[in-house]
């Protein structure tokens, strides 16, 4: 029961954050929402008892990709952040 409630809340939050990632006008906010989506999906994978996928998603989706995006945005001139 408790797990089901957590999963439903997680799914709704994921949908909301994914929509915000597409919809936000500033690129840096979009990247941050994308990072939050991956971080929450890590919780989802852990709840579905797939720790291997969770570790990979945490490292690649939420660490590496976010760092590269932020770094690229910060080092480009003339891009609206």
């Amino acid at each position: 029961m408790f797990n089901t409630v957590i999963e439903v809340i997680l799914g709704l939050l994921l949908l909301f954050l994914a929509y915000k990632a597409i919809d936000s006008k500033e690129l840096i906010k979009s990247v941050m929402y994308l990072s939050a989506v991956s971080m929450l999906s890590v919780v989802g994978f852990a709840l579905m008892q797939a720790p291997d996928v969770a570790v990979t998603e945490a490292v690649i989706g939420s660490g590496m990709v976010t760092a590269l995006f932020v770094f690229t945005l910060l080092s480009r001139k003339g891009v609206k952040r």
Partner: peptide, 18 residues
């Protein structure tokens, strides 16, 4: 344990990125 070569290697690359 969970994880393995692919996440481990990406963590090493993340330290280089840092």
């Amino acid at each position: 344990t969970p994880g393995g070569g692919f996440p481990g290697g990406t963590i090493i690359a993340a330290s280089v990125l840092l």
